[in-house]
Structures are given as structure tokens and as C-alpha cells.
């Protein structure tokens, strides 16, 4: 029977032994060295049955198919738009994936998306060379107008969204704001100026205490206090 050498939810560093025994399996962020399972990155240990994996605590965004991201238009080309994805790899938004409208030949593309615009887009394809294709056709995908964009650590995004969007919905409701969380670590917030600031602070708080238990209650407490104090 395999033996765990570290506690669950412990922070481990690359090269640290996690478990012993051939019946346990190395998951994401781990590898096997003889009969041991070893950490291959810095992360938080998570055990699910026989599988041991690591939840990353830091790192840049790596484009993944079907992720909804917030991107910035950096270039207009003959075939469409080039978009900065807040990662090492820029993405392409081709003409036919950009809009269902008819775009005439030689039309001025900046009337759809101009350089510097932020868009909510979905990744349709990522090649082995990490060439990324985007689409803005689909529910909830559009150009962003107004509001503000903050950047958070991409590894904390699942925590900001919460289970089935519980965390972000709580902030939205409390501050009466519109929030879009991109998987790439960019977050768009629009609300009354005061509420916008409170929402930003709440998100920063989640980012800082991402792996503390009972975070939802803590954020709730903060929101109640901040909104009452602000009025």
C-alpha cells in the first residue's frame, strides 16, 4: 500500500518526494521516479483516490481550447486581427470568426475592432506550436466598452470565479457591477466608481488569500463592511 510523505494541501517545491508506492499515480505537476512520486513544480498537494496532483500557485497563462479570455487588439492584418492574450503567445482573430455581419472587401476593419480595444473572446483552437485562434461569435463574446481592466494571477482565476461562479456572482450582486473574468488573468469590471473600487479590492483580496479556507465568508464580510462604510 502506498504511503503519502506530505500532508494534503501542503506547499511543495520541485523535486520534493510526495508519496511512495507503485499503487499511487502521478497526476498533473508530478512525475514518477522509481517507486516515488515527485513534485515537478511548485504547488499545493491534492490527493484524489490514488491520484496525486499539484495545484499550481504561480505561473503564466498558457492558451487552452475553449477558454474565454480577455484580449487586446494589437494589430490589424489582411486576414483579421492580432490579439494579445496576456501570455507568451499572441492570437489571431480571423475575419469570419469576428462577426456575423458581412464585411465588404477592403472595408476599414477598425470600425469593428480598433487597435487598443479589449475584447472577450473564446479560444477555438491551439496548435502544437501554440498558434491560437479566437472567435467573438457566441453568447457573451463582445467588445468591451467602459469599465476597467485589472490583471490577476492566472492561477487564481478559478478561485475568483468560485464554484459555478458563486464567488464572482456574490461580488457582482453586492456591488451591483458587471464583471467578466478572463481565464488569462484579465478581469473587466464596470460599476459606479465607488463600487468599482470595492469590487477591485475584493478581487485583490481573493487573489491574496486564494488558498485560505472559508474565503467566501471572509469576502462576504469584507463586502458588507465596505459597502456599509462607503455610504
Amino acid at each position: 500500500m502506498g504511503k503519502l510523505l506530505v500532508k494534503e494541501k501542503e506547499v511543495v517545491v520541485p523535486g520534493e518526494d510526495l508519496a511512495e508506492g507503485m499503487d499511487l499515480l502521478p497526476g498533473e505537476g508530478c512525475y514518477r521516479d522509481e517507486n516515488k512520486i515527485v513534485a515537478a513544480r511548485l504547488g499545493l498537494v491534492k490527493v484524489g483516490g490514488r491520484l496525486i496532483k499539484l495545484i499550481p500557485l504561480s505561473g503564466k497563462y498558457l492558451p487552452k481550447k475553449n477558454d474565454v479570455i480577455i484580449g487586446k487588439i494589437t494589430e490589424i492584418t489582411l486576414m483579421g486581427w492580432r490579439v494579445d492574450t496576456n501570455s507568451a503567445y499572441p492570437a489571431m482573430l480571423s475575419l469570419r470568426d469576428a462577426t456575423s455581419e458581412y464585411i465588404a472587401k477592403g472595408a476599414n476593419l477598425s470600425q469593428y475592432y480598433a487597435i487598443g480595444d479589449y475584447i472577450v473572446a473564446k479560444i477555438t483552437n491551439v496548435t502544437s506550436q501554440n498558434l491560437v485562434d479566437l472567435t467573438t461569435k457566441g453568447p457573451g463574446l463582445h467588445k468591451l466598452k467602459g469599465g476597467r481592466i485589472i490583471s490577476v494571477q492566472p492561477t487564481k482565476v478559478p478561485r475568483i470565479i468560485g464554484k459555478a461562479g458563486s464567488m464572482v456572482n456574490m461580488i457582482k450582486k453586492a456591488t451591483n457591477s458587471k464583471i467578466i473574468v478572463g481565464q488569462n488573468g484579465l478581469v473587466w469590471i464596470q460599476a459606479e466608481p465607488k463600487m468599482e473600487l470595492i469590487a477591485v479590492e475584493a478581487i485583490r483580496m481573493i487573489e491574496k488569500y486564494a488558498h485560505v479556507e472559508g474565503l467566501t465568508d471572509k469576502v462576504k464580510e469584507f463586502l458588507d463592511k465596505a459597502i456599509k462604510g462607503g455610504r
Partner: peptide, 11 residues
Amino acid sequence: LADAGLTMKDL
């Protein structure tokens, strides 16, 4: 490098 969250076999 470990702090940057890169995949590493060891330090």
C-alpha cells in the same frame, strides 16, 4: 524559476 511556476524536475 520555481517561484515563476515552471515545470522543473528538481531545484
